[in-house]
Design a protein around this nucleic acid. Structure first.
Lengths: 145, 145
DNA sequence: TCTAAACATAGCTATAAAATATATCTTATC
DNA sequence: GATAAGATATATTTTATAGCTATGTTTAGA
């Protein structure tokens, strides 16, 4: 059981941008910094822009910056938006073929469990996942000047 | 985000066997009943036997039956045993390559969320996921005489 | 004692989702 | 107009999971 890298990368991009303030950052910079695929990041960035989390600027000297305050970016909401398929067991999928679903207690139980999972994420914002005391170390690890 | 069919099938086998009491059931019967792969079920059954949840009998007229009371089979424990990889984000994996892990708040947050997820499952036993009132319907759906 | 029916076990193959790559287009700066 | 950036679509690769094949072992019963 795990979330996709897509969701993970989305969160990482936001963490990176939160360190940069108003300065424009390029996809290349973030890809280099985390040593991850630039191509995959392009999709991530595209969606973060569409969803309003970031603002992108095209053309030479372009890039992106946060478009929301870190304390306004809720992790639970973001994960629900980026995680493509949250059907934790087959019976929640639209392709469900399990015959006992109508009388099976597994479905409500896993529903409750997923709800508890997301409820934890709902408690946190982007600001919460970046502790002030670690900021200098974070900047160093990301090689941000 | 989802659990594997392997875990799902494990639970379904136990539900099936719980309906049968002491009678021996074959893998073929269960595969036919749920209309799922017999071959995959063989692995599932093998592991359930190894873990002590069921008892298997080899040879002609063989089969399997529950080896624990339904109220003693905890879903949370079972899921931890059958779900191969519970590293919800890369930073929990032994192949983690994310540079900011030491100072990143995502790791403890997702840890807390996974814990909340499993805590819900820990509240339930096999008996809880099979409501008495649905038993006749369940037997019919599984085509158990 | 032979055959068939069952589980045991290992290894292989197919599939589907996700990740990554490629290619081309659009936009903006210098 | 060249270059550097994102926008977008499509193709390929990778990986985990699911499913398949094959053979071995055990037991019941003819």
């Amino acid at each position: 059981m795990h979330i996709t890298r897509y969701t993970d990368y989305s969160l990482r991009v936001l963490i990176y941008l939160a360190q940069q303030g108003d300065r424009l950052t390029t996809i290349q910079e973030i890809a280099d910094s985390y040593d991850i695929s630039k191509n995959h990041l392009m999709k991530v960035v595209h969606q973060l822009n569409k969803k309003g989390y970031i603002e992108t600027v095209r053309g030479k000297k372009g890039g992106m910056r946060l478009h929301m305050e870190p304390e306004s970016i809720n992790v639970g909401i973001l994960v629900r938006e980026t995680e493509h398929d949250l059907s934790i067991v087959e019976c929640y999928s639209d392709k469900n073929a399990c015959k006992i679903t109508p009388v099976c207690g597994l479905k409500p139980m896993f529903g409750e469990a997923l709800h508890a999972f997301l409820a934890v994420l709902d408690k946190y914002t982007l600001k919460d996942v970046m502790k002030d005391q670690y900021k200098p170390q974070l900047l160093r690890l990301l090689q941000i000047a």
